[in-house]
Design a protein around this nucleic acid. Sequence first.
DNA 1: GCTTGTTAGTTACATTCACAACCAATAGTT
DNA 2: AACTATTGGTTGTGAATGTAACTAACAAGC
Lengths: 151, 151
Amino acid sequence: MHRDSEFDPQDFLPYLLNQAAETLSLEFQRHYRGQYGMLRTEWRVLFHLGCYGEMTAKDICVRARLHKTKVSRAVAALQTRRFLTRRELERDRRHAVLQLTALGQKVFADLSRAAHAFDLKARAAMTPDEAEILHRCLIRIAGFETAQRTG
Amino acid sequence: MHRDSEFDPQDFLPYLLNQAAETLSLEFQRHYRGQYGMLRTEWRVLFHLGCYGEMTAKDICVRARLHKTKVSRAVAALQTRRFLTRRELERDRRHAVLQLTALGQKVFADLSRAAHAFDLKARAAMTPDEAEILHRCLIRIAGFETAQRTG
DNA sequence: GCTTGTTAGTTACATTCACAACCAATAGTT
DNA sequence: AACTATTGGTTGTGAATGTAACTAACAAGC
């Protein structure tokens, strides 16, 4: 029935990673999408602003590895919802520093809590050793090694 | 400068998984996209047909966890490129069994080889133990545990 | 036969995305 | 000052996606 199996899709790392990522992402979606009607990119931008404090759109592009158009649109959406404000710099009016409003911070706090709980639940399916190795491998694959942490 | 760090995006499993998956997927894209102008979904459909032999669109939906509309469109695209043929069943004309053409099989063989090499290269960045644990964890997260293997 | 329900697959439409072109502000060169 | 390059960010357009509505084939009950 089937060809000599060169190898199984499940053994192909990009495929397996995508399935795993999709599974968790779809599950967590219900928090930011269901509760706040946010898109994935918007949640990411909010998440980064909440975690790292105020920064420019460009900073978010680099940190979150998002294309500037996606960030631009996500920021616009978050702004109309009063989740963040933009403040232009006088020394260089091309930059606009983004900052969560009180409302945005409340939403971030809520989602951050949910995210943390979600993370713990996910890790509960493995031993601490496994969780640590998984984390290490993913960091390496994503290329987060030395970069990112320094900001 | 930044808020009390509840936790870092890099510690949030869905995010980290997505970044890792995106990194590898984008890298491998150049094979099926660069060489054959295929889309991700098309590559997946081809991959599944090549690995498991002829099957219906529905089967692919279940195995590859793709929505039927995506499969429908991918199949149409692969068909116009003469990568596969569809054969209706007389006993139930709703079903159409899909099957790679000789050309499709050649493309599959090529991409399959590339995929295997890619996979080896990716795993070379870890120890065998790490690779095995990573695989195990991802299978578990993706929910491939008992399902999928049985066909 | 005729209705109702289910399943395999396609089509239509509205949203989202990728990519390129664009604009405005700054920096560098002459 | 004028000319070009670069950078931060936005906008416009076609391609890709998600969701729902749809068609066609079968199945079951009457």
